[in-house]
Nucleic acid binder design. Structure first.
Length: 473
RNA sequence: GGCGGCUUAGCCAAGUGGUAAGGCGACGGUCUGCAAAACCGUUAUUCAGCGGUUCGAACCCGCUAGCCGCCUCCA
């Protein structure tokens, strides 16, 4: 089936045609590891994860590369503030970032590359630019890219350089550049950098911000590759500058499709520390939310739309996920346990005659995700499947397992049946006694005690049953 | 000032020319000692407002209002 993706460069949804059949090379801008990632950052990585999973679902082989920016102004500044070495400092935040990703079931890219481990690659790229006349050294020793020499600057962002002079933020104080728009390829060491520097033909210093992405993406994916992804704020100047320096160096078209995720808003506005609406995965956990509820929440809006985060909407997502799990548990029990924990682990054993009913459903799901990753639509297909009256429980479970290869919500992961706490068991016995004696007040009081322990008692025809309480119950 | 985007029920949101997906919530019914769960049913004659194109528009065009983002190191 055709895959359509929106390309920021052309501002259109286009059929995705890979450079090599059934293979895709993807470069995704990763984090600068100087602080904790917030949920807005993570939205972008959830998006990239679904992109990755969508390709796998379509049977593509993937080279998915992500960088870790572990040297820049902020990492240097804040590592000094925390009294740590740059390496120790960035490793700390890299680990936290990866843990957060794991909590959201974001799969690791095939190649995770650190800027500091690719300095020679960057130096040789700057050298090439220098040899071709695109770079110049300013009075302070830093090496800059000369934008005036590059045809087509601004083609991604649509920015008009002549209008930039009226811009609000133009830092003209720091360095001596020929043009305000020129950007650093190699920065000169200064005292504030302390121990952090590398020797290079351009002097002692460190790479500019953009050069790492050009150097590492072409190293691992070639001079031209399929997709470059990131969040919208990177369109300008980061990606614009990357294009300039990469295409200037190679003389070839670089990225075939640019994909950008929109921002997460909080209470209708930008997340900011001063508004105290700067949330981390740890904050969600602390409030009792399942991190995967945040993943589900991300799927309720399209990646190219701003999505408004509120606690109310996260709660809705949490409840929806719990309801989904409850439905799945019912499907399982109606299968009488004859299935294992995962009826079709790969979801690929379809196609046998009895499963022909489900290919129509699979097509619906595939159409949704192949249409520029329409996850809200895919979620709707999931619910329609769960509620369909035309499918058997086994078929539904097979489909859910299949969809979940893309959704990554661990829908078929069976909860370890850890059993009830002894305290709850005891209360249940006491409550049963009270009920036999028709002591309703006593029975209700014990129900309250059990609820306080996190369990809900329900009285059905076969007596009382317990389940874990739902969020907010 | 320049550029881009958004406005769909109480909330979160799909749909982008053929007559309003899905989730959450709410309400009514069945059941229950009461609840809960479950099941059944209800919940936008209408898509910010006005005008235009069209046999037909939430979807295309114009204007108005409101909101958001970017304009040199922010995902």
């Amino acid at each position: 089936m055709v895959i359509k993706l929106y390309n920021t460069m052309t501002r259109k949804k286009e059929e995705f045609i890979p450079l090599k059949p059934n293979q895709a090379g993807i470069y995704a801008c990763g984090p600068t590891v100087y602080n904790y990632a917030h949920i807005g950052n993570l939205r972008t990585y959830v998006f990239e994860d679904t992109l990755r999973r969508m390709f796998h679902y379509n049977g593509f082989a993937l080279s998915h590369v992500m960088n870790i920016t572990d040297v820049d102004d902020k990492t240097i500044r804040d590592s000094q503030k925390e009294g740590m070495s740059l390496k120790g400092f960035t490793e700390k935040y890299t680990k936290i970032f990866l843990d957060d990703c794991a909590a959201l079931n974001i799969q690791q890219p095939d190649i995770l590359c650190k800027a500091t481990e690719h300095i020679p690659d960057m130096i040789s790229l700057v050298q090439r630019l220098s040899d071709k006349g695109y770079a110049y050294k300013s009075g302070d020793g830093a090496t800059y890219f000369n934008i005036a020499k590059f045809q087509g600057y601004g083609k991604l962002s649509g920015i008009d350089l002549s209008g930039l002079k009226a811009g609000a933020r133009v830092a003209s104080d720091e360095y001596e550049k020929e043009s305000l728009s020129d950007f650093a390829l190699w920065k000169t060491w200064d005292q504030k950098d302390g121990e952090v520097f590398w020797d290079s033909p351009f002097g002692k210093g460190r790479p500019g911000w953009h050069i790492e992405c050009s150097a590492m993406s072409t190293k691992y994916l070639g001079d031209t590759f399929d997709i470059h992804a990131g969040a919208v704020d990177l369109i300008f100047p980061h990606h614009e500058n990357e294009i300039a320096q990469t295409e200037a160096a190679t003389g070839k078209p670089w990225v075939r499709c640019w994909m950008h995720a929109e921002h997460l808003l909080v209470d209708g506005g930008k997340m900011s520390k001063s508004l105290n609406n700067f949330y981390r995965v740890a904050d969600l956990k602390e409030k009792g939310y399942d991190p995967l509820a945040y993943r589900y929440f991300c799927f309720t809006g399209h990646y190219r739309s701003q999505l408004n985060f509120t606690w109310e909407s996260l709660t809705a997502a949490q409840r929806a996920l719990e309801n989904l799990r409850a439905e799945i548990a019912k499907l399982r029990s109606s299968e009488g346990g004859k299935l294992g924990t995962d009826p079709t682990p790969e979801g690929e054993k379809m196609g046998s005659s009895e499963d022909k009913d489900i290919t129509g459903w699979k097509d619906k799901f595939l159409s949704a995700i192949n249409d520029d990753l329409n996850l809200p639509q895919a979620i709707a297909v999931l619910w329609d499947t769960v509620k369909s009256s035309d499918l058997s429980s086994a078929q539904k479970l097979a489909l859910i397992g299949d969809y979940d290869r893309v959704l990554g919500l661990n829908l078929l992961e069976s909860k370890k049946d850890s059993g009830l706490p002894a305290e709850v068991e005891q209360l249940l016995r006491k409550r049963q006694e009270a009920r036999t004696a028709k002591d309703w007040a006593g029975s209700d009081a014990i129900r309250g005690q059990i609820l306080a322990l996190g369990y809900v008692v329900e009285d059905g025809k076969g007596g009382q049953t317990v389940r874990e309480k739902k969020f907010g119950e």
